[in-house]
Design a protein around this nucleic acid. Structure first.
Length: 800
RNA sequence: GCGGGUGUGGCGGAAUUGGCAGACGCGCAAGAUUUAGGAUCUUGUGUUCAUUCGUGCAGGUUCAAGUCCUGUCACCCGCACCA
């Protein structure tokens, strides 16, 4: 058979679609497999090779599971709300709805050309009102359960996109969308109380099978720390200043305190602060600092001493100065710290600069030279002297503080509450009404969806307000509670809202009564295997686990965790080894590859490039190599010779089936393909293959190169579709050779190889080794010290 | 600074988890075929004439180390004044 991919691929794609062979059924009597890939944002650029790699892994696994008799749910939808579409609309005047529909249509047809076995009847679009109705519904449920709040605080703001960003969306001080520098701005914004779920998100990780580094990144992002809250009396104020510390045992070493410049106590006691003008001056300087200055001038501490207020050390009773400095953040702990310069580098730098006392309380370092952050015995600490700070000093101090009522054990998280809004048009409207009498009133559930109004001008307001604010018909409404005049919330939800629950909607995408039928949820959940990019680990993956866990807590979903297993694919780099980007001009368009080489070649090459989880550069020659392989495969139909079975080919076939079967499950696609290449080489070497052998080979290649395999299947007279054929079993007996070749070493150096029967015992294997000329030669005149035989592998003779 | 990862031919990468390093593919070379180019097929291809030497570098454990241990260098990723 000649490999004519152009005629083959379209034909089989149509046949698959007509027969609907990739549709998941809700037949709960069958064993299920729910495979999930991160749904794409339908950008105007269309499909990228990165998409193909991201989907190809579970594509192969899903196809294999289907052949193994599983009821497979492998869907794809579109995460279509977001700024790029809106910005495009601003530029061109084309409505985001229209742009989105066009892009989805383009993506879908491109994806179908690759032959992915997605169940297209279950596709979802987050911008569809029948979808975002339920996004809004979940938001209202969260509101009802006290997980939504509004707060005026300093927020991450992108001046270029003119939106407020969550902590997750502004990592490294850069906007996740446009990479501009983030500024801190005081704004009234919506928050989701994700911190309330910090412990549940942490504990949930213990029950799931995620890549270790995925787990670790989430653990670090949540950033749980144990320590204590300690109350310091403040001379000049009638309230205590509470600090958080992970090292309460160093309290006797505290020589000053530091508040964040934004600490509320400052304004409260500004009459008592005799140098408040200096405080305000310092605040201005801090506000103007860029992220770069803040992070790169770490050693150079700045600050202002607060005159008129002083702290009292609760264990020693000593009076200590209070400073403000921007090395203390309002967003972590209590926004104030106790400073122990002898044992904290930052406090040390500050104390040195401001001439503050340094008291050693842990033995082991030299405080003349720098802070000692290691372990040791407590000193200068009254009742704590002699305790070991690694073992029991912290517990002892917490016990003491608790007894005296000036402190208690506590935990803190680095993760912050989720700033949950964007001041833009193309997002889910937040279903809340602001009533002058009743305050924030949620829309009744039966009024969902709250539809986005049709507008023409998508420009955000200069003051950073949503374009929706300009639409009077949308804004002005009646309060659902009292019926009086009220105004609608005009912010929309952030990009991550729709993607936080989409995997639930695939299960029942057209349900109008609920987001998904409970029985169907019970059958399909959890997602058995979720694959996606590492870049989503501290964003989408943590958000969606939070939403899912909340839904579990209110009884809406049957599992605590949404995803049983999580893996990640590596990047495809440009041919130059650099990350693909338009500006570098090293982008490979998968559509061109399909045109020139065919979809099967694209699929096989992407999985053959290297370790699925690692980054690998694109190579046009590598693509050609895969094309050559598939051409050689196609030609196998001409090499069928009845009764020509050779033990070599037959044995290797069984070995290959075994290896491909297990390699696919471990996502070791590159070695699975290599094994099949080896088999094909062997068949060519022997010159013939039987029809049954070829049929089995076609089945194991089918998940990788389904179009070619369907064609060969038909040529071989197979019934129905190769894609639905039964996955071949292998005969274990045929995967072991009767005669094996083992290596013979003398003193660990390889001298020869000998063939011995597979079941040979140690004495006979060693005897066979010694019988070999080269070995006998090497052993001549020496006395044997030790003989080792590792069954099936090696004989090592130690001789002097 | 902290956390994680990776270093193997000319290149992408294998190595049953301590047991013949370099599977498979690319590239390259020679030959065959072809009017020619391209394509295809065959053979070879870490290094050395060879005994040798070879998995970033230096040690160590072991009969045996790419794999384990100690130290070190380089690069990549994540977080970052988190108290």
């Amino acid at each position: 058979m000649k490999y004519d991919y152009r005629s083959i691929e379209k034909k089989w794609q149509e046949k698959w679609e007509d027969a609907g062979i990739f549709h998941a059924s809700d037949d709960t009597t069958k064993k299920k497999f729910y495979a999930l890939v991160e749904f794409p944002y339908p950008s105007g650029a269309g499909m990228h090779v990165g998409h193909v790699k991201a989907y190809s892994g579970l594509e192969v696994i899903s196809r294999k599971r289907r052949m193994q008799g599983y009821n497979v749910l492998f869907p794809l939808g579109f995460d279509a709300f977001g700024l790029p579409t809106e910005n495009y609309a601003i530029k061109t005047g084309i409505h985001p709805r229209k742009v989105t529909d066009m892009n989805i249509a383009k993506f879908t047809s491109q994806m179908k050309r690759v032959g992915f076995s997605f169940d297209w009847t279950r596709t979802v679009d987050t911008t569809d009102e029948n979808y975002y109705k339920w996004t809004q519904w979940i938001f209202l449920k969260m509101f009802e359960n006290g997980l939504v709040f509004r707060d005026k605080t300093l927020v991450n703001y992108c001046p270029s996109c003119k939106v407020v960003l969550s902590n997750e969306d502004s990592q490294g001080g850069k906007c996740d969308i446009c990479h501009s520098d983030i500024v801190q701005k005081s704004k009234d914004v919506w928050y989701l109380r994700i911190t309330e779920y910090a412990d549940k998100l942490l504990e949930g990780l213990e029950k799931v099978d995620y890549l270790p580094n995925v787990k670790l990144q989430q653990v670090n992002w949540i950033g749980k720390s144990r320590g204590a809250f300690v109350d310091f009396s403040v001379k000049g104020a009638d309230e205590k200043l509470t600090i958080y510390t992970t090292r309460p045992d160093t309290l006797f070493g505290v020589t000053f305190m530091v508040m964040a410049p934004e600490h509320p106590m400052l304004d409260k006691y500004k009459d008592k602060i005799t140098n408040f003008d200096k405080v305000e001056e310092y605040r201005d300087i801090c506000a103007k600092k860029t992220e770069f200055e803040r992070t790169n001038l770490v050693k150079d501490k700045t600050g202002v001493k607060i005159e008129g207020l002083a702290g009292i050390n609760p264990v020693s009773g000593k009076e200590i100065p209070i400073y403000i400095s921007d090395y203390v953040m309002m967003g972590y702990g209590t926004g104030a710290i106790m400073a122990v310069p002898a044992h904290d580098e930052r406090d040390y730098d500050f104390a040195k600069k401001f001439g503050i006392d340094i008291i050693e309380v842990i033995k082991g370092g030299n405080i003349e030279e720098g802070a000692y952050t290691g372990d040791g015995e407590m000193v200068n600490s009254e009742f704590l002297n002699g305790y070991d700070n690694k073992k029991d000093s912290i517990d002892r101090m917490i016990e003491f503080l608790t007894e005296k009522g000036v402190g208690k054990a506590g935990v803190q998280y680095k993760m912050k509450d989720w700033a949950f809004n964007r001041q833009r048009y193309w997002g889910e409207p937040i279903p809340i009404v602001h009533c002058p009498k009743c305050g924030m009133v949620p829309l009744p559930y039966e009024e969902l969806p709250l539809r986005l109004p049709k507008i023409d001008n998508f420009e955000p307001g200069e003051g950073g307000e949503s374009p929706l604010a300009k639409i009077d018909e949308f804004v002005n409404c009646k309060c659902p509670h009292c019926g009086g005049d009220a105004k609608r919330e005009t912010d929309t939800m952030p990009q991550w809202a729709g993607s936080s629950w989409y995997f639930l909607r695939y299960i029942d995408p057209t349900n109008t009564d609920t987001f998904a039928d409970p029985d169907k949820l019970k059958y399909w959940l959890p997602v058995d295997w979720y694959n996606g990019g590492m870049e989503h680990v501290t964003r989408h993956l943590i958000y969606s686990r939070f939403w899912h866990r909340f839904l579990y807590d209110i009884g809406a979903v049957p599992t605590e965790e949404p995803y049983a297993k999580r893996t990640a694919q590596g990047l495809i780099l440009g041919p130059d080894g650099e990350k693909m980007s338009k500006s570098k001009g090293n982008v490979v368009d998968p559509n061109d590859v399909v045109d020139e080489y065919g979809a099967d070649v694209l699929r096989v090459y992407i999985l053959f490039m290297g370790d699925y989880g690692a980054a690998a550069p694109w190579s046009e020659n590598g693509v050609k190599g895969c094309k050559r392989f598939l051409e050689r495969v196609a030609a196998l139909t001409d090499m069928i010779a009845p009764g020509s079975e050779t033990p070599e080919v037959n044995s290797l076939l069984h070995k290959t089936i075994k290896k491909v079967t297990s390699d696919i499950e471990e996502m070791k696609f590159n070695t699975a393909i290599a094994a099949m290449m080896t088999l094909v080489n062997k068949i060519y070497e022997k010159g013939s293959i039987t029809k049954d052998e070829l049929t089995a080979f076609v089945k194991i290649l089918c998940p990788f190169a389904p179009h070619l395999c369907e064609e060969m299947w038909a040529t071989l007279g197979g019934k129905g579709f190769a894609s639905l054929a039964e996955w071949p079993a292998y005969d274990e007996a045929k995967t072991v050779d009767s005669e094996i070749e083992i290596a013979v070493q003398i003193c660990g150096k390889l001298k020869a190889t000998v063939k011995i029967p597979a079941g040979a015992d140690a004495p006979s294997a060693i005897a066979a080794a010694k019988a070999c000329d080269k070995v006998a030669e090497a052993l001549a005149g020496k006395s044997i010290v030790k003989e080792i035989y590792v069954p099936g592998r090696i004989v090592n003779i130690v001789a002097k």
